[in-house]
């Protein structure tokens, strides 16, 4: 399982999983966009490479997911896959690099809900048997 949604009164809460931190982050991005479009149906026509920084892991995750939202709203980019992610954790801050693949927004891809923002509320990044992430987004 890549991700699952949990009940939450006002907003949307999801959990994402991965063998590695990178995989869990990647799955969190897919969970996020699944609230807006069916990522499985989006073709891989465009590639966008991103570099994200964050003072700690929660901020790195929020900044990364915010980037995906931003690319949709202002670059009309629909995500299909997150590839080759690398996360470097250092004392002076964390850095993430990755390729995002997908296509331009068009009427052939139906969109539904809207995500306004990614929040820190109830946010969790834990290493259990595997990596576990929990995020609440404002919808």
């Amino acid at each position: 399982m890549r991700y699952r949604f949990m009940p939450h009164t006002g907003d949307a809460k999801f959990q994402a999983f991965g063998e590695s931190l990178e995989e869990a982050f990647s799955n969190a991005a897919l969970a996020l966009v699944s609230l807006m479009w069916d990522w499985k149906k989006v073709q891989k026509k465009r590639k966008i490479s991103v570099k994200i920084e964050g003072k700690d892991l929660p901020q790195l995750l929020v900044n990364f997911l915010e980037e995906v939202l931003f690319l949709f709203e202002s670059r009309s980019f629909l995500l299909n896959a997150v590839e080759g992610m690398q996360i470097k954790q250092r004392d002076e801050g964390n850095r993430l690099t990755t390729d995002l693949r997908g296509d331009d927004y068009s009427s052939k891809y139906p969109t539904f809900g809207e995500v306004k923002a990614v929040t820190y509320h109830d946010l969790k990044i834990e290493k259990r048997q595997h990596y576990f992430i929990q995020v609440v987004v404002d919808v």
Partner: peptide, 8 residues
């Protein structure tokens, strides 16, 4: 005011 999650 919401009562039920969007998922539900």
């Amino acid at each position: 005011g919401r009562l039920m999650s969007r998922k539900k």
